[in-house]
Amino acid sequence: MTTWQPSERALQRAAYRAGRRRRSFGVALLSTVVVAALAWWVLVTSPGWERARETFFDPAEFTDVLPGIAEGLWLNLRVWLIAGAVSLVLGLLLAIARTTTAPALFPLRAAVVGYVDIFRGVPVLLVLLLVGFGLPALRLPWLPNQAAFLGSLALVLTYSAYLSEIFRAGIESVHPSQVAAARALGLTRGQTTRRVVVPQAVRNVVPALLNMVVALQKDSGLISVLGAVDAIRVAEIAVTGSYNFTPYVAAGFLFLLVSVPLTRAVDAYNARRGWRGARGAAVGIR
């Protein structure tokens, strides 16, 4: 084994690349500063800026309402975790139901298609209002009527429909040769679905599923329209009392505190599993 001494040519190339990198960094820095300064200038020279700063960014109000909103956020987080878990399971079951072929299960397949069409096609807000105010009107004695429960139910209806479509895309992405291999071994259709198709399907769509889970974390704030005392509702109550909108900004800040690390964690997880897309393997191409 000979020790490698970079050739004159290699050193020149390295120096050139280092120079280009310094230049790229300089350009990026300059453009960031220019854009940020421009945005700041537009903001502070706007006619209503003085007034807006007082009503949206009041530091005293911010620290005042933060603990109450954080308490409300705890409800959002619980709704998010429970509705998310239920939606994932239900979404997978819906997707599997759609792949069945038994004639006796035709009503099930038809029902799933209808369910997905309806809850994917109606705005989440509308589903929330209809479930939140419609179901209690039926006066079913066994149905809990807390806003948090009804709100979670509405989110599950919408999100399970979306997630089932993601799972279905995953199922369709499994190569038919995998099914042929399983059936050739004598596995039944059902065994093939459970043991070969679904495990690979789920792996294929993990990034898309995680995106929906992050989106649900934000949408958990919609349950406030039913009167559930979550972060947004607490902020709303504070705003009504003072006519200062800082509580909304505080609520937004708290949502970001959860969703940004979550998004970063999802991206990091996907990158580790090799889902870096066009920025992955192709990044070394000059």
């Binding site: 040769s177 050739a184 596995l187 039944t188 690979q200």
Partner: peptide, 20 residues
């Protein structure tokens, strides 16, 4: 058909091993 397939062995050009 499942029982019949179970009596035969098939090996494919592209192996078709279960990747997971």
């Amino acid at each position: 058909a499942d029982a019949a397939r179970a009596r035969m062995g098939m090996v494919f050009q592209a192996y078709n091993l279960f990747g997971h």
